[in-house]
Design a protein around this nucleic acid. Structure first.
Length: 222
DNA sequence: ACCCAGGGTCATA
DNA sequence: TATGACCATGGG
């Protein structure tokens, strides 16, 4: 596109919002549930995560104290349906132990965004995407969430002259540096991109076909 | 039967 | 810095 990204990206957002409406992310009633869901959904369909969350509720494992107290093998059994259950049980307990040892979830999430992100990334099992999920959807602070869906959409657009194998931060900066730092916008934009990729956009090929962004997709490859 | 989901860690070069 | 193996269930 010839228009600057600061105009182009809001246009993408307006189209997605007009097409799909508000997405209501993150599903869940508490910061605890957002954090747990963010870990459990790593490379896993959300439906499988919901079953695991339901299992945790039913088992009374619904606080970081309870998560930390349960033997890891038992926690793994409770979250079985979310897949990678041994790895994820370890991650949940790492987060629980870290949080309990350092003044609780409220203290953690109450920091400024930069300090919060650094601390989240220091916890086993929390990478960049999960950290940004937690910052936006649990802490309510702006840090644009990047994921494979959004990268796929970006790669199809003519506006992104990114190098091959561009990293998380390069894709993230594309949005973050060209949009107002508004957590409500970041919240909805990521959810809309995710919904768009899952429901409408074709998974492969150089461009979308017949969707609200089709005319913005890169046509140089076919 | 095959593909992949709202990733991250760890070993290796 | 950058690849690749590994983690594992459940729905299409």
């Amino acid at each position: 596109m010839t228009a600057p990204l600061s105009e182009f990206l809001p246009e993408v957002y307006r189209r997605l919002y007009a097409a799909y409406g508000p997405q209501g992310w993150w599903p869940g009633d508490s910061a605890f549930e957002v954090v747990v869901g963010a870990i459990l959904t790593q490379s896993t369909a959300w439906g499988n995560v919901e079953k695991a969350l339901g299992g945790m509720r039913a088992a009374g494992v619904w606080s970081f104290e309870a998560v930390a107290a349960l033997p890891q093998a038992e926690l793994a059994d409770v979250i079985r349906s979310s897949g990678y259950y041994n790895a994820k049980a370890r991650k949940l307990q790492a987060f629980a132990n870290h949080t309990l040892a350092r003044g609780g979830l409220e203290r953690l999430l109450g920091q400024d965004t930069a300090a919060l992100r650094v601390e989240l990334l220091s916890i086993h099992g929390i990478g960049e995407e999960t950290a940004d999920d937690i910052i936006v959807y649990a802490a309510g602070k702006p840090s644009f969430v990047m994921d494979s869906y959004t990268r796929r959409i970006v790669d199809r657009m003519g506006f992104a002259p990114l190098r091959r194998n561009a990293g998380y931060g390069e894709y993230q900066s594309l949005f973050q540096d060209n949009l107002p730092a508004d957590v409500g916008l970041f919240n909805e934009f990521h959810a809309l991109l995710d919904h768009h990729a899952k429901t409408t956009c074709v998974k492969r090929g150089p461009r979308c076909s017949g969707c609200c962004l089709a005319d913005l997709c890169w046509t140089g490859g076919g």
